[in-house]
Design a protein around this nucleic acid. Structure first.
Length: 943
RNA sequence: GCCCGGAUGGCGGAAUGGCAGACGCAGAGGGCUUAAAACCCUCCGUUCCUAACGGAGCGUGUGGGUUCGAAUCCCACUCCGGGCACCA
């Protein structure tokens, strides 16, 4: 920017100097530099090859910094949204200045329910609505001066992007999980194994005896993406099924809070359970917070135990899963989930003679009792079931035998046993399990303790460790040994096996929605799925007029909106038998699909041949330090702890197994930014009032003279406490907003927004500007004389501290140190030497790029500050010639001495002991010990 | 209930075994100004002693421990935030 292009401050502010750094000057600087950066491609990151490579071979180390890309909301940004984006921008800019080839860009997660719900309410087509929202959000973000490589930006709704989402789906569809080598392999390899007999088919029938349809059905059985017929979460209000992860623990949809019903339906599933152990184990190799790792571990929910078979009176065997096989001798009942498949066969015709009335559920026959109970249970919502933890159930008139001692125990059905976990059957051991204890109390079932509780134990079921009792050959063994002994016995005698069970279920992957990726799948007259050939991709969404999903009731079936595109729904392909018509899959993919691999497309966004070039992928995703690889820094909210992060890891592992990516994990380092909270005020009726208009007086808050109460919460319309970036741009400029957001506190912590504090960050920039520029003439006041030694020491200590803080993402500390340096310059009230000015401006570069770039230019530099070297601290100036250090007596500071730095221990000890004040305090005391820490302190222990 | 975080002045926070409260906001006093704003300078945890300079005690949620020395490490507890939850 030319100085002449800067107009003096506006008329309204003519009392302030013409070249003061204020909001209007900030805006001029910011808009102009944003224009130039775009024009000059300042933030473009070079690939090692291909269309995005640069002329010269890049020898710098790479760094891939990424934000969780946003859903383009129509309601616009508030100041809380860009916190993480500013954080990654500062870090990326800093790393660029210390020599990295940094890739940083931004995209949009634009498919999915929210876009469609919005479109449904406004009547606007999802695509045009989405595109408008993206444009609006991009405009707001651009004004922040984020240093993104815009050539690499994608939206998941771009046809050129979802073409490859479909391609990846086909990779998964065309694969199976080989548990022998513990990785996914192409389905064609399975076909070879089956036909040669090297692998047995799922039901043991020889491959050669199967006809073509049966062979296809057999292969479908093994695929990583398959059509499952399991109970799914059906949400009639949204007109779609949902993944387990999208349903709250109250049994409602996470989006919209609508009721969700469990119903068996044929839906696309992804075999994520095949990866459960690897998803769990590889967490160890990731630099993520413990809390996120714990959440993923809990979600996967691995538990080790044994599967044990119980012979029933009718001959069939009930399999149970237990983590406590050591308590087998304490089993006094068998409890099945009401939906358990063996219930009908096991239920007796009549009540056995001595059946207690309590067990009969007021029914004439066991069959009637079971029917009644099942009806009662299915009428309960998940919430009611959860709230009411009292144990209910009925006896089904049958018995089974405890394998280890042959005891006959009664079989019940009860809703506290869930069909969806383990085998849907539980050996009830009331002595060691509180749920079983409660059930036993309710039905007057015998209780046998098999672990000796401590004498002080006063509880009911005892789950702690202790010696086994009442347990035959296990007696005296503690839990771990007893488990081992009984499991060995069970395996030897053929009654059970060591087993691992997971809470993780396969991922329900289809949605009855319009605004999502169509499946690249068609069906022929067998009703079996066929892949659309790769060279026929993309399968584009049809332009529908009537795209809105219908709100349905519980009894109805989902109606995919794509079914209304009757012409589209039939397609002609040559799948090996010549051109034939096929019917299309009418479901679409869930929103999570697009976000499972966008980081890979950033690397090579325009590649028409592959989803990403393998060399480019290896360059950006491999860790030269021997780490697990993946994105070097991924910043986003903690709300994606299980959903997005688990799905993306799963897809990445499949791609890794198939040789399409170079490492097993997508995100090496994950960092969760905090949220910006804001004060919200309620009047006496509890109604929220505009936070902007509340005034504080003596610790109380008032709105239009009436007292209001203050709480803190997420910024938004409902709490009437939003502050927009645009408000801040017009009051202070984008650099001030960036600086304030980074100064508020550590990036990973929630923090309360305080508009009145923003002025502090603005003042810093104003003072920096004033230290280098004459506010009334706009002339640079920097001089070419060398700085004094004392100032150089301050400068280099600042450089060292700022560098360290930047590395550790502690931008608040970096800003504090820069402020100290600048305060020192102000205090000295003399022209600033160029050497100091350069370093100061360079350190500000990552934080406030516009003003830094402008000052850099005014200091006489013609190249952009973005690619300059971050200042390096000179070690000579990090130590003072002399240091003042405290002398403690018994741990309390009693004096200070000034000594030359680096003084040896003995000399330091002498100096401390000869200090007059210390001498006086020590008079008449015995010195027991003197602790000397060079350049830090001396502590004298005396009594 | 279980699992993860966290607690430091009026407020946001700094210090990760070595001078607690850096830096900022708010507040007080002063300078400049006819005046106000802006700007600049000084003070600003708390109690006590002193006319003052200074000095002493207390102090990082609570109680204990380790250590010459603890905001920082260990144990127990309280409160706040988040996650999971009839998962056998």
């Amino acid at each position: 920017m030319n100085e002449s292009s800067l107009s003096p401050g506006s008329e309204a502010e003519d009392s302030s100097p013409a070249f003061r750094y204020d909001a209007s000057l900030a805006e001029e600087i910011e808009v102009e530099w944003q224009r130039r950066w775009l024009e000059e491609g300042t933030y473009q990151a070079a690939n090692p090859l291909g269309p995005l490579s640069s002329q010269e071979v890049d020898t710098r180390p790479k760094l891939f910094v990424m934000d969780m890309f946003p859903y383009p909301s129509g309601s616009g940004l508030h100041v809380g949204h860009p916190l993480g984006y500013i954080g990654t921008d500062v870090f990326a800019r800093y790393k660029r200045m210390v020599g990295y080839n940094v890739l940083h860009t931004m995209g949009y997660d634009a498919f999915g329910l929210p876009a469609e719900e919005h479109a449904r309410q406004t009547g606007e087509h999802p695509r045009s609505n989405t595109e408008n929202n993206i444009a609006n959000m991009q405009r707001q973000l651009d004004r922040l001066g984020l240093g993104h490589d815009k050539r690499r930006s994608i939206a998941t709704t771009d046809v050129s992007y979802y073409r490859w989402t479909q391609w990846i789906f086909l990779q998964i569809f065309q694969s199976w999980y080989d548990t022998e080598v513990n990785r996914a392999r192409p389905i064609s390899e399975l076909e070879d194994l089956l036909s040669s007999g090297a692998r047995a088919t799922s039901d043991g029938r020889p491959w050669a005896e199967m006809d073509e349809t049966e062979k296809r059905r057999e292969l479908d059985h093994w695929r990583l993406a398959y059509l499952g017929d399991a109970p799914v979460n059906w949400c009639p209000a949204l007109g779609t099924v949902l993944a387990n992860e999208e349903v709250t623990s109250e049994g409602r949809s996470e989006r919209g809070n609508h009721p969700v019903f469990r119903r068996p339906m044929k839906q696309w599933m992804m075999r994520i359970t095949a990866y459960a152990d690897r998803l769990l184990e590889d967490l160890e190799r990731l630099d993520w917070t413990d809390s996120i790792k714990t959440m993923q571990r809990n979600w996967i929910g691995r538990s080790e135990g044994a599967q044990i078979g119980f012979e029933t009176s009718s001959g069939s065997k009930i399999e149970v899963f237990t983590t406590r096989p050591d308590t087998l001798f304490g089993t006094t009942a068998m409890v099945l989930a009401p939906e358990h498949p063996l219930v009908d066969a096991l239920t007796a015709k009549t009540w056995p003679e001595d059946t207690p009335p309590l067990w009969r559920g007021n029914a004439e026959t066991p069959g009637e009792a079971v029917d009644n109970y099942r009806r009662k249970v299915s009428d309960l919502t998940d919430l009611e079931r959860q709230e009411n933890q009292a144990k209910t159930g009925v006896y089904i008139g049958a018995h089974c035998a405890v394998p280890v001692n042959g005891h006959r125990v009664p079989i019940f059905i009860a809703d506290y046993v869930l069909m969806g976990y383990g085998t849907g059957a539980v050996m009830s051991v009331p002595g060691q399990d509180q749920r079983d204890w409660d059930f036993a109390k309710a039905f007057e079932i015998e209780i046998i303790r098999t672990v000796e509780p401590p004498s002080t134990f006063e509880g009911e079921a005892y789950a702690g460790d202790g010696a086994a009792i009442n347990s035959g050959f296990l007696n005296g063994l503690h839990i771990d040994d007893a488990k081992r002994a009984i499991t060995d016995w069970l395996e030897r005698e053929g009654h059970g096996l060591r087993t691992v069970t997971y809470k993780l279920r396969d991922w329900l992957f289809s949605r009855q929605r319009y605004w999502g990726e169509p499946f690249p799948i068609v069906y022929d007259d067998t009703g079996l799925a066929l892949a659309v050939p790769e060279n026929q991709l993309p399968v584009e969404l049809p332009e529908l007029i009537d795209w809105a999903p219908r709100t349905l009731d519980e009894e109805s079936d989902p109606e995919p909106p794509l079914g209304r595109a009757t012409e589209w729904a039939v397609a002609t392909y040559d799948l090996g038998d010549g051109e034939l018509p096929y019917t299309r899959e009418l479901n679409t993919m869930p929103q999570w699909a697009g976000s499972c691999w966008y980081y890979l497309r950033y690397l090579d966004p325009n590649n028409e041949e592959r989803f990403v070039d393998p060399m480019v992928e290896r360059y950006w995703m491999t860790d030269s330090d021997g780490g697990v690889g993946g994105v070097d820094l991924y910043v986003g909210g903690v709300e994606h702890a299980v959903l997005h992060l688990l799905y993306a890891r799963f897809w990445h592992k499949v791609l890794f197994d198939l040789g399409h990516v170079s490492g097993p994990e997508p995100f090496q380092r994950l960092y969760n930014q905090g949220y910006i909270q804001a004060a919200a005020y309620q009047d006496q009726r509890g109604i929220y009032v505009d936070a902007e208009d509340v005034v504080e007086s003596g610790g109380e808050y008032f709105y239009e003279e009436s007292p209001v109460t203050r709480t803190f919460g997420k910024m938004g319309k409902s709490l009437k406490n939003s502050v927009t970036p645009d408000d801040m741009y017009s009051a202070y400029g984008a650099d001030t907003l960036r600086l304030y957001e980074m100064f508020m506190g550590p990036l990973d912590q929630d923090r309360p927004w305080e508009t009145k504090s923003v002025i502090g960050s603005h003042r810093l920039l104003q003072r920096v500007w004033r230290n280098l520029i004459d506010e009334s003439t706009g002339a640079v006041t920097v001089v070419d004389t060398a700085p004094s030694d004392s100032l150089k020491r301050i400068l280099h200590r600042t450089i060292a501290a700022v560098g360290e803080a930047m590395e550790g993402l502690r931008f608040n500390s970096a800003i504090a140190r820069i402020t100290e340096l600048n305060n020192e310059l102000s205090r000295r009230a003399e022209p600033v030497s160029r050497e100091v000015a350069r370093a100061l401006v360079l350190m500000l570069g990552p934080l406030v790029p516009h003003i830094a770039e402008e000052l850099w230019k005014r200091l006489g530099n013609s190249n952009s500050i973005v690619h300059e070297q971050f200042p390096a601290a000179q070690p000579d100036f990090l130590v003072d010639e002399s240091v003042e250090l405290p002398v403690q007596v018994n741990g309390k500071v009693r004096s200070r001495i000034v000594v030359e730095s680096g003084l040896e221990e003995e000399a330091l000890r002498g100096a401390a002991l000869s200090d007059p004040r210390i001498e006086e305090l020590l008079r008449g005391k015995e010195i027991r010990k003197v602790i000397v820490i060079q350049d830090r302190l001396v502590n004298i222990v005396a009594s």
